[in-house]
Every structure is written in structure tokens, then in C-alpha cells.
Simulated scan of single mutants.
Amino acid sequence: MILNQDTPNLPPLPEFQGADEQDLTLEVFTHKSLNPNPDELKPGFGNADRLSVLGSQALSFAVTQFYFRYTPQLTAQEIILKANEVIQGPKIIEWLDAYPLLKTRLRRSQASNTDNIFASLAEASTHFHTYVGALQYSRGPQVVNAWIFGLLSLSEGVKVEDEDIPMQDPNPPPPASSSSASPPPPGYPQGPPPGPPPGYPASNAPPAGSPSIPTNFISLSFVHETATKRRVSIDYSAHKEGAAHTPSWTVCCIMDGVERGRGTSSKQKTAKEEAARNAFVAMGWA
């Protein structure tokens, strides 16, 4: 099926979120003909070229995963061929046509013609990859995969679901003892071993109420994935203080309109990650 903006059940265009939302929008929708310094690296995502590289890889993974889960199963060579048809072919231009905002919002110099820009497969692909990269950066892989799976399901006329693979606990609890286990021999002490003698340090087990997932395992994308699964909206507010060469960023993580976590750092991205982790724990998801 050829998709267009009137195609029934066309997935809604995902939007950027987070403290970088405005900067991402400006970067993605400013054509290089209007950007006086395209190589400048901004905090966090860098620039459009970096987003395009990220988006190209994210798109390739999502498309490959779709055809890997396709039914009936495809051979390895068939997966490669079908994925390349999407990634390297005119499907990108078709998807851009299905979402006119991706084209009309692009700011360009007066000398550049929008039709000429998107008539070039290379230019169109770069713009689409940049948008996907910004989504991957701000919303995480689950949002990208859900969108691409929706588009490909319509194109192929087959519904393919992206399976959610839960994150494994790096410290799984020990297996429960079997009720059929043999009882200890006569004379062997029953029940748990006695505690340490007075004055001897207790075990180094984490205190009650500590998170079951260590905070260093909680990534920004994992927080966003969990919030999406639980249908919790997530947003950020950022505030900078101090001199330009020694800034202090404070970022608040807001879930369903309520501040749940806060982070402070000299780098906005680090403060955002800390705020998201603190919110994750505050929501009781750890």
C-alpha cells in the first residue's frame, strides 16, 4: 500500500519531548542553507548531522526488527533485502508525503526550493533521519519502533507487534526453596542460621525501601519506556544559573503534571538524567 496523509489508521506523528524540545525542533527544521554554523555542537544532542546518524541507525534497527518479527518468517537474506528496500528506497519520500508538516515546517533560504529539496532521495533521507534521531534522543527507542512498526504494518497489510522485552534485574532474588526439598538430617539445626554475635557488623544487605534496580542501571530511555508503558506523561523544565563558562543546570522531571524528581549538574543532559532517575524511584518503579 502507498501511504498518504489520508490513509486510514495512519499513526500520529510523534513529537519531541523534554528540556531540549525547542532546541531539537529548531535544529531539525532548519535547512543547512539557512544555518550559518552547521558544525556547531550544542549541549546534549550536538547538531543535525549527529541526529541524522543516530536516526539512520535507529531506523535501520526498527525496520530490521519489523521484518524479523514478520509472519510468515522470512529468511535472513529476505530480511536484508526488504529492509534495504525501505531504508534505501523511495519509501522515505512516501512517508514524508504522508506527514506534510515534516516538509512545510522546514525553514530554508529563499534560494532553496522545498520541492527540489525533497525530490532528492539523499536530501529527503537526511531530513527524515534527523527527525527520527531527535525522536530517539528525546523519547527513546520504544516510540521510534512503535511509529515505524505502524507505518510498515500499513504498507505490508500485516499487523506486526513489537514485543516489549523487560529489563532483567541485575540482582535477581535467589530462587525460592522447593517444598519438596528433603528435610535436614537429625541433629542438623533447623531454621535460619543465627545472627552475628553482639558487636559484629551486620550483613551489607541494602536497607529496606532501597530500589531493587540500582540507579546506575536506570537510563533516560528506560525511564521514558516505563512511563510510556504505564501511560504516564513525562516532561522536563530546565533552569540555568552562573556564568557561561561555569553554568549550573537544575532540571525537574514532571510526570502527569507533578514534579517527581530533580537533578543538578554543570551539564544539562547530566542534570536531566539525574532528575529522571530520581523521578523513577519516587514513582515506585524501581
Rank of each mutant, 00 (worst) to 15 (best):
S180D: 13
N171R: 10
L106T: 13
V132R: 09
S182C: 08
E94M: 12
V86E: 08
E85T: 09
A122N: 09
P184Y: 10
K82S: 11
F149H: 02
E156K: 03
Q168F: 07
P90M: 04
F118E: 07
F149N: 01
D169H: 05
T126C: 08
P185G: 15
L106M: 15
N84E: 13
P90T: 14
D97K: 14
S120K: 02
E78M: 05
A98T: 01
T130V: 03
E85F: 03
A146R: 15
A111D: 13
L102V: 11
P90W: 05
S138H: 08
G89C: 14
E156H: 02
G150T: 12
S179I: 12
S109F: 04
T114Y: 08
I87N: 02
S153T: 06
P175S: 06
D164N: 12
N171L: 12
Q136I: 02
Q110M: 12
D162A: 13
A111R: 14
D115M: 14
A124R: 02
I80C: 07
L106P: 13
P166T: 11
W95Q: 04
T114V: 15
Y137F: 15
P141Y: 07
V86S: 03
F149L: 04
L106A: 07
Q136F: 13
N145V: 11
N171C: 05
S155A: 14
E156D: 06
S138A: 05
S138Y: 04
S120E: 09
P141I: 06
E161P: 02
Y137I: 04
T75K: 07
L152G: 00
N84K: 11
R108F: 01
A134I: 03
L152T: 03
V160I: 15
K91F: 15
M167Y: 11
P100L: 08
H129A: 09
Q136W: 10
L96A: 03
H129S: 12
Y137R: 05
P166D: 06
P173V: 02
K82Q: 14
E163V: 14
I117P: 01
W147E: 05
P166K: 11
A122R: 12
K103P: 03
K103G: 07
E94A: 00
V158L: 05
Y99P: 06
E94C: 00
R108T: 10
D115F: 12
A134Y: 03
P166E: 11
I92D: 04
S138N: 04
P172T: 09
L154W: 13
E156G: 01
E85K: 13
D97N: 15
A134T: 02
V160Q: 04
K159W: 09
S177D: 12
P166L: 13
